[in-house]
């Protein structure tokens, strides 16, 4: 019995995954308003992808997110973070300067607030999501 033949699981997972992802993105972007942030949200998004890979097959998922592409995203996420940090130096402050030197903070309580915080969270989220999925594939993949 193949896993992807389990109809109930297949359909329920297909139903739930978009919600998980949207929720994950919500947790990422609203990290400065509510609990969560880049890491938790990224993990939730990753969990959705892992769920997908579990329900269908790992190889299918691997086609969508090959190791090459995953490592590209990981690097980009990290570079994004460093780049935002260097932005602080560009505007005349120190590394990872946010509100201290001229970056508008916005109104607290709204999504666009906290200056670079949402952007940083987003970078972390992408990186974490891809990393976790990549870890999963690395462990699961057949030699």
């Amino acid at each position: 019995m193949r896993m992807q033949e389990i109809l109930i699981l297949k359909i329920v997972v297909r139903f739930v995954i978009p919600f998980i992802q949207v929720y994950g993105f919500y947790v990422i972007t609203a990290g400065h308003l509510s609990p969560g942030g880049g890491f938790a949200g990224g993990t939730i998004v990753a969990a959705s992808m892992v769920l997908y890979a579990l329900t269908f097959d790992a190889s299918q998922g691997l086609e969508k997110l090959s190791h090459e592409r995953a490592s590209l995203f990981e690097s980009l996420g990290a570079i994004w973070y460093v780049a935002l940090g260097l932005l602080g130096i560009m505007v005349g402050g120190n590394f990872l300067t946010n509100g201290q030197i001229g970056i508008p903070l916005g109104t607290p309580g709204y999504l666009i607030s906290g200056g670079l915080i949402p952007l940083l969270s987003f970078g972390i989220g992408i990186k974490v999501a891809v990393t976790v999925v990549s870890l999963y594939y690395s462990l699961v993949e057949e030699d």
């Binding site: 978009p18 919600f19 949207v22 929720y23 919500y26 609203a30 709204y110 999504l111 666009i112």
Partner: peptide, 15 residues
């Protein structure tokens, strides 16, 4: 999904 998002975030800010 949009409805889900709006209900979860419970905010009508334009952003």
């Amino acid at each position: 999904l949009y409805i889900f998002w709006l209900l979860i975030s419970w905010s009508l800010n334009w952003v």
